[in-house]
């Protein structure tokens, strides 16, 4: 066996310790330690294309009470795209009202997922 990797599944707060066996070409031979089917999915992504949901805030133009509104990417984005996503978030300014789930940037940084508001402000 070429490599064994120990990972902590971050898909839920239990945080199972996963052991992933890889062959010389990086193919997954075996995954152990998960308590539910989300574990192997996480492990597969983590060794091939690690992804994270990005959460942040964007500036509000037209309110003194609520200077920022919280946002997130709907799905996880590749880790190496996180800073690109953050740059776009920082440049974005929105006007109120905003509602939970409003799409603020569609297909952000070509990741195939949208940036949405996570809070409603009048």
């Amino acid at each position: 066996m070429a490599e064994q990797r120990k990972l902590t599944c971050i898909s839920c707060p239990i945080g199972c310790q996963l052991t992933v066996d890889l062959d010389d070409d990086g193919n997954i031979l075996n995954i152990e330690g998960n308590s539910c089917p989300r574990g192997p999915i996480y492990a597969k992504n983590e060794v091939t294309n690690p992804k994270r949901v990005v959460t942040s805030t964007v500036r509000v133009n037209n309110s003194l009470v609520h200077p920022v509104v919280s946002v997130r990417t709907v799905d996880a984005v590749p880790k190496d795209k996180i800073y690109e996503v953050m740059d776009l978030i920082r440049q974005l300014h929105v006007d109120l009202p905003v509602k939970i789930g409003d799409v603020l940037i569609a297909n952000i940084a070509d990741t195939g997922t949208d940036l949405i508001a996570t809070r409603s402000y009048e």
């Binding site: 971050i10 707060p13 945080g15």
Partner: peptide, 11 residues
Amino acid sequence: LKRNIVQCLDD
């Protein structure tokens, strides 16, 4: 939580 050490520090 361990997941926070992984995704907030290790990352």
